[in-house]
Simulated assay, not measured.
Amino acid sequence: MSLRVVKPLTIVPAMLLSTDVPESDYAPYSAATTYELGARCIVVSDHAVYESLVAGNVGSTPATSPAKWVRVSATNRWKLFDLVNSSRTVRAASLFYEIKPGAAVNALAVLNLSGATSIRIRVTDPVYGLVYDRSTTLISAPAFASWYDWFYADRVSDPQHVALDLPSFPAATIRVDLTGDSSLGVGTLLLGQAKAIAETRYGSRVGIRDYSRKESNEWGDVDLVQRAFARVCSLPAIVPHASKWRTAQLLDSLRATPTLWIAVDDDSLLTVFGWYRDYEILISYPTFSELSLEIEGLT
């Protein structure tokens, strides 16, 4: 079982060829408009939403006026590229993105999905034509389903999908089509090169870091407020002695960097999008070393 990492490719506007997700969260910024406190607008050139910090705000460009404007988020069209996994690009029933990365990529992931029922990924090269076309159903049967559950219980929508077999054509365009219900949304769409850095061993531990509020008053009443959580994962792995220095160099370069960590292919629980808190290489055997990784996912 190879432990793979995918460092996301930064998607810039020139790479996005087409999409059916509108960029109409708010009205575009106008220098002639007077914005009141809390009013919002979008700056299309930045693909960002800004909020006014003062009343009577006129003639102050949002991107260059931090005393009068604050950046709230990417626009709906660009939220899936901002690497903030908790914010989603939403569009009811279906959406598509067509991207020309301008580099060879072999991995694609859509994360923090909501309401998705299927995905189709196509890779088209200008010389060789359509070189990859795969559709996948994202609806799963209930866990531990009995025959009754199989036919009548609610189906569960997979929260993510990872494809690690894209053909590497540097000039190709990649099209992603998602279908779903009225709540269809995508937290992150990332492209990159999947690189094996070690061999995963049995004994991985997976859990969450919960940011929900749990408070008790003097009478013992408990106030529970559900908030975001982050997936945490402890991964044991082994690295051949000949590769330990390259593995350490790669991990050093990924510090404080949102990265997709894939401990086992086709295992959503052991696929985490986040950052590593620390790693340790123990040189314990004549031919290989032990690697331990502590990974924390993005909320």
Rank of each mutant, 00 (worst) to 15 (best):
P66Q: 07
S140H: 10
N57D: 13
P258Q: 03
V162C: 00
R246C: 07
V206A: 05
E296M: 12
P236F: 08
I139T: 15
L164Y: 06
V186Q: 01
V72D: 01
E199R: 15
L164N: 09
A194Y: 03
L293H: 01
S140W: 06
I119P: 00
L138P: 02
A256W: 09
R277A: 03
Y279A: 01
V123T: 15
D154N: 10
A107D: 04
V6L: 02
K195Y: 10
A67W: 04
Y29F: 14
G207P: 00
V186I: 10
A230Q: 14
A67Q: 08
S268Y: 12
Y29P: 03
S216R: 14
Y148L: 11
L269H: 12
T117G: 15
S87T: 11
F273H: 00
S118M: 02
G274N: 07
L270D: 07
T299K: 09
W261R: 02
S146K: 03
W219G: 05
Q226F: 11
V49H: 02
V44G: 10
S243D: 14
F169A: 15
N76E: 04
R231M: 04
A230R: 15
A145N: 03
K195I: 13
T287V: 08
L260H: 00
P28V: 04
D133E: 05
A74F: 01
P28R: 04
